[in-house]
Design a protein around this nucleic acid. Structure first.
Lengths: 236, 236
DNA sequence: CAGCCGTTGATTGGATCCAACATTACGCTA
DNA sequence: TAGCGTAATGTTGGATCCAATCAACGGCTG
C-alpha cells in the first residue's frame, strides 16, 4: 500500500528517533500498556479489567480504556461480554495448541515466500539477533528477540497482512514463553534451529528452512504440552 | 478457555434460536451493518466513514460508531489514522494475493485437522450446501454458502482461534468474490473441487482433500490475479 | 509571482453525565 | 428450610459536551 517513501535523506533524519515511545492518542497508549502487561504475564488470565480502575491508574478517562479493550478483544487477549466487563483471556493447554496450529500453518508459508527475496542486510540482522539471544539473560527481552529474529526471516515475504498475522501470533505466544523456558530448562531456545534456519535461508533453500521451522514449532508445541500435562489444573 | 459447558440438554434447547438477529449492543449492530456493507461491496474501498454521518444514518450516537470502527480496523476492513478519520480499506491485486497467501496457509491446515474427526452430520451439511450452491443465482448469497461449506468441512478441527481466523479471511475474500465470478464467467465456483473435497474428506483422505483445496485456492488466486491484470488501474 | 504563515472550518479524540443491565443480597412465602 | 421474587448496588453502554488536531483557504512577504 504505502510505499513508505524515504524522505529525501535530509540531515534532520537524526530527529526521527526510531524508538520514540510517543503515543499518538491515549487509546494507543492504554492499548500498548495493557498488551505489554498481558503478554509479559504481569496480568494473569482471568483478571477482571474494570474500566474505571484502569482509567484512574493510567491517568486517562474511561473512553480510551474502552477503545483499547475493544482492540485487545479483537486480538483475543481479553474477552468482553456485554454489561459484564472485560477479563484477561485465560491461557490453557488447548489455547496453546490452538496458537501452535496457527503458527505451524502461517510461519512456514511466510518463510517460503521470504527466503528467495531475503537481502543480505536482513540476514545480517537475523544473525545479530541470534548472537544477542545467546547472551540475553532476561526472559522478557528474550521473547522480544525471538520475535524479532523470526520476523527478520519473514520480512521479505511481502504480504503485509500475512506478516501482521504472524507477528500477532508470535506475540501471543509470549504468554507461554515463560512456561516454555521453565519446561525445557533454559536450553537456549533451541538456538541450533535458529542457526540452521538462517543458514538454509542464506543458501536459498526455502524448503529446508521451512522444514527446520516446522520441527522448531512442533518441538516447542510438544514442550508446552508436556508442561501443561505435568501441571494439569491451575485453578486455585 | 470456556469449556462451553452444554447446559444439561434440556428440552428447552428449542428456544435457543440460532438465527437470532438481536443485537446485544448498539456497537455490535453498527459493526454488523458496516461489515456486511463492506463485504458485499456496497461500500467501495476508499469511502470515508464520517462518524457523525454514520451515527445519524443508523440512529445511534457517535460512540457506538467509534467502537465499531475500531473493531473493523482490527479486521483490516477499515483504515483509521488519528484525527483524520476512517476509510474503507482499499482492495487491490496485492491485497488479494495477500489474502490468498493467508488462506492457502490456514485452510489446508484446518482441513487436515478436521477430516479425521468429521461427523456424518457435518458431511451431510456440507453436501447440502453444495447442492444449494448449484441452484443459487444471487452472488451475495453464493458467497455465504461458499463460506458455510468451507467452514462445515473445517468445523471438526477444534482450535477455535484457528477456525475464527479462517472464517474471518474467508469473509474478507467475499470482497473479491464478485470479481471472481465475473472473471471465470460463472463456472459454478469450481463445484467439482467442492465435490472432490467432500468425497475425499468422507473417505478420511485428509491429504487428498488438502491437495484439492490447495489447487482450489490457487485456481481462485490465479483467476483474481488475471482479472486484476486485465483491469490494472481502477482509479477514476 | 512563489512560498510561507496565520486563520477558519470541519472532524475526531477525550471527558463527563445519565440510563440500562447484571449481579448480589435480602425478605417473603410455600 | 428451600425457592422465588424484589430491591439495592456497582459496572458498563450510550449520549452529549468540550478540547485538540488536521486540512484548506486567504493574506502577507520576499
Amino acid at each position: 500500500m504505502n510505499p513508505a517513501l524515504p524522505p529525501p535523506a535530509s540531515p534532520l533524519d537524526v530527529l526521527a528517533d526510531a524508538t520514540a515511545p510517543r503515543w499518538r492518542t491515549a487509546a494507543e497508549f492504554v492499548e500498548a500498556r495493557l498488551k505489554a502487561a498481558i503478554l509479559e504475564g504481569r496480568l494473569a488470565g482471568g483478571t477482571p479489567l474494570r474500566q474505571e480502575e484502569l482509567a484512574e491508574r493510567l491517568g486517562v478517562s474511561r473512553m480510551p480504556v474502552r477503545e483499547a479493550l475493544r482492540q485487545l478483544e479483537a486480538q483475543a487477549l481479553v474477552e468482553m461480554s456485554p454489561h459484564r466487563g472485560a477479563v484477561v483471556a485465560e491461557i490453557s493447554a488447548a489455547d496453546a495448541a490452538d496458537l501452535f496450529a496457527i503458527r505451524r500453518a502461517l510461519e512456514p508459508a511466510a518463510l517460503r515466500l521470504s527466503v528467495p527475496r531475503l537481502t543480505t542486510a536482513q540476514r545480517e540482522c537475523a544473525a545479530a539477533l541470534i548472537t544477542a539471544m545467546d547472551v540475553e539473560p532476561d526472559p522478557g527481552r528474550m521473547g522480544l528477540l525471538n520475535r524479532q529474529f523470526h520476523m527478520a526471516l519473514y520480512a521479505a515475504a511481502g504480504h503485509p497482512r500475512l506478516l501482521a498475522l504472524v507477528e500477532q501470533h508470535l506475540a501471543a505466544f509470549d504468554r507461554y514463553l515463560r512456561f516454555h523456558l521453565a519446561a525445557q530448562g533454559r536450553e537456549r531456545m533451541a538456538q541450533e534451529d535458529h542457526r540452521a534456519m538462517l543458514e538454509a535461508a542464506g543458501a536459498g533453500r526455502a524448503d529446508t528452512a521451512a522444514a527446520v521451522l516446522e520441527g522448531h514449532i512442533d518441538h516447542a508445541a510438544a514442550a508446552i504440552a508436556a508442561f501443561f500435562s505435568a501441571r494439569p489444573a491451575r485453578r486455585p
